[in-house]
């Protein structure tokens, strides 16, 4: 027969063991909030420089993106900057180019590619306007090359802008150059009316 005293001591023992077990799980077990795995850019004590991400070996290309299409990846054909696009320029490409241009280029070059971006007003040396005859005469591959490799004080934008986006930007630069240098008589009739109507 179980005496009251025995029941009491059993209860105490059960509680004590449960508490101890919880303690072991809580302290020595896996912490689910911070699991032993690396998230992007996490620090590491394993590698000498303290970074968990390893630098890319030079010449590494993402799987599936290797190509020998020289025009696409360098803007050159037979070693010379080409005035060609490696893929058809559609409305979608132009829209992507507008979005990327406004994000990455407009801070310095301005939204009209006239070299009057906000960062220039803060003291960054002014880049040339793209709306001059000499820049307008540059081949498309030239702009691609500048985005890829940088130019003068401009750093390379290859790390932040993928290849196809660079071409989309070049296409949009062409659109901007056109839009800022078009004669009124070359506009569609409806827009001519609108423009002249406003000017009067």
């Amino acid at each position: 027969m179980i005496t009251l005293k025995k029941l009491f001591s059993h209860t105490v023992l059960t509680f004590a063991l449960s508490a101890a077990a919880l303690g072991v799980i809580g302290c020595g077990g896996v912490n689910l909030d911070n699991q032993p795995k690396y998230k992007p850019l996490a620090a590491s004590r394993f590698f000498a420089n303290g970074q968990s991400s390893r630098p890319l070996v030079e010449g590494t290309v993402p799987r599936g993106s290797f190509t020998t299409d020289s025009l696409l990846i360098t803007g050159k054909v037979n070693g010379k900057l080409a005035d060609l696009f490696p893929f058809p320029v559609t409305e979608q490409v132009l829209e992507r180019g507008q979005d990327r241009f406004n994000t990455f280029c407009s801070p310095c070059h301005g939204r009209l590619a006239n070299g009057e971006g906000m960062v220039v007003r803060r003291g960054f040396p002014q880049p040339p306007s793209f709306q001059t005859d000499s820049v307008r005469a540059m081949p498309a591959g030239f702009f691609f090359d500048v985005i890829t490799n940088g130019f003068g004080r401009m750093y390379s934008y290859a790390p932040s802008v993928p290849v196809r986006d660079r071409w989309a930007i070049v296409a949009y630069i062409r659109a901007l150059q056109l839009s800022e240098n078009v004669a009124v008589k070359d506009l569609p009739e409806a827009e001519q009316h609108q423009l002249l109507g406003k000017a009067q």
Binding site: L41, P107, V119, G123, R153, P159
Partner: peptide, 19 residues
Amino acid sequence: SSFAGIPPTYTCMTCHSQI
């Protein structure tokens, strides 16, 4: 990507090499 990305110092220096 799942991760928005924290810019490398390179990105800061794109402007701050000049200003």
